[in-house]
Design a protein around this nucleic acid. Structure first.
Lengths: 182, 182, 182, 182
DNA sequence: TATGAATGAGTATTCATTCAT
DNA sequence: AATGAATGAATACTCATTCAT
């Protein structure tokens, strides 16, 4: 996450793990296998919980907020929050990983949110918008924040508070798609 | 932009440029110098125009929309749109470039937007929000889109239309920070 | 010593050492470091013994001969005898090494000899000559021989016998600076 | 002479000559040809005069001194004095040049001196010594001085005066091989 | 199971050489 | 005649991978 795949030396990984260079090889047959394991391990938990929120009942407005808060919270852990940056960086070098990440994580999460938005439009809470587009708009700032925190955000002298960002975003977005008052 | 700094071989750059391996070296003393030149060249034009929009007159609401549209349009050119992805990827390996990119591009653009938002609040067009936070919220989706298009977006079977994304975002955001109707 | 620093390929060093190309790099971080190590290792022993002979007692004439013989004998080992040629060749490319070689080896040795000659003049064995100049004159042929043997001397069809050279030189030189018989 | 053959870039030669890189190539078909030309040009004059002194008449003692002084004086010109250092350095990389240098310059000069010494022994001026060995002993310090001045001698804080060196050497050497007084 | 010495494929970089202008 | 842009062979250096201990 710090330097990308190519610029990360296996020996540095070993040192960071507190073992010798040769030990890494015992557990991972190749550098690429180690990389895949890191990504897999990090997104596993995320995958599991995403869909259970889609099928809940209650106000779509509240469920959407809950899902976004869950994603934002998950990405707070640097081991998870660094993954989007990593995937974005390595798309060109590991197309298959990127593809399955896109399908298993991005698409799935997007669809879940689009579904909730669809429900919200149906019950009159939201004004009629393209659900997929709206799902992007509600998630992208959250992902961007995670990427930002793990990259250029380092040079922010006065970094944005993640909670304030999250809540202001939710507030603004939900106002923005709220059905017009009659 | 495709593979990142380390995974891009100088010979591939040469081939792409239609010259021989040695020719690249004639023009750029090192791989890093070539990298810096690419980034510099790409963000130059962007730097120039950002601030001229800050100081305009007229409705803050319209000027904010114009600025966001300008950024979005600039990022449509793949030579510019790939830069955010590249900078995000290489932060760890080229801290100084990242730092100046953050300062010269990100910060400046953010401040310009925050200023317009501040004006909007003052004249009663926008409800009172943290201007910096709001500036993040209005730009982040645009940047995220650029990063997305140049990375995981490739695997989208049904990619989002950039114009629809931009306009829906602006519409939703501007509704979201609009002052409450009396 | 054979081809000089630049013309010596690291791979040839590896082959000569009976290891693979990469192995050299494990032990020496750079070609220059390897070079420095070679020189350091070669002149170490020489450094140690030079001064112990300066402080001896007995006839300056005999002690000077002993020191010259010691230097000549040390230079007989090709790993040591090649160093002067190497240093002379690489002065322009490794000024710091050359400087410390000059200081630690050349100067020290010269001073030791000058001191003995000074003692010889004082006790009437030698006629009054400039001790530094005389020290040069007594050592230079010995160094020159070492350089010669490791360079152009190769093309001598009838090479000079080192022992004969040494003894004839000592004989001639000592006659040459002997105090005039009363 | 400064950096040796390999470490000297053709472009630096061009700059030193006040012409462009391409111009050097017009005059010398290759780097090696340029090198050969430099050496050839430098030793040409030396070659011519060496033998005319061998065949002179008069005291061998004086003629030997004259020849040594001539060699020493020639080597005072840095363009000539640097040649021995250069040849010594590049023996391994240009065996043929080294070989002809050895034959045309070193051997010829040595033979001339040996001949004079032989004459000196015959006429009773010199005591019986091996003429070749003695020729080495009378020339080596002079060559060594030239090499020294163009290499490690640079680091001498108090450099030896070439004239004093030459005269002291001649004096000491001629005393050293003088026939014993009856 | 853990180690680290040894390996060699891959790549940036240097620079002599070519040649069109 | 002089130039300098373009080339590519040569080589130092990096580092993933292998494997004996």
């Amino acid at each position: 996450m710090e330097r990308g795949f190519a610029a990360t030396r296996l020996e540095d990984v070993a040192v960071a793990a507190g073992v010798a260079k040769g030990t890494v090889v015992v557990y991972f047959p190749s550098k690429e296998a180690l990389f895949r394991a890191v990504v897999h391990q990090s997104i596993g938990p995320l995958l599991a919980k995403t869909e259970e929120l889609r099928d809940g009942s209650g106000s779509p407005r509240l469920r959407l907020a809950e899902l976004v808060r869950f994603i934002a919270t998950s990405l707070r852990d640097p081991r998870v929050g660094g993954i989007p940056k990593l995937m974005v960086s390595e798309v060109g070098n590991f197309p298959d990983m990127a593809c399955s990440f896109h399908g298993d994580v991005c698409q799935r999460s997007l669809q879940a949110q689009a579904e909730i938005i669809r429900q919200g439009i149906a019950c009159g809470e939201f004004r009629p918008v393209d659900p997929i587009l709206a799902a992007h708009l509600v998630t992208d700032p959250i992902i961007m924040q995670a990427i930002w925190r793990n990259s250029l955000g380092r040079y922010e002298c006065d970094p944005v508070d993640p909670d304030a960002y999250l809540e202001t975003h939710l507030d603004t977005f939900l106002r923005g798609i709220a059905a017009a008052p009659t």
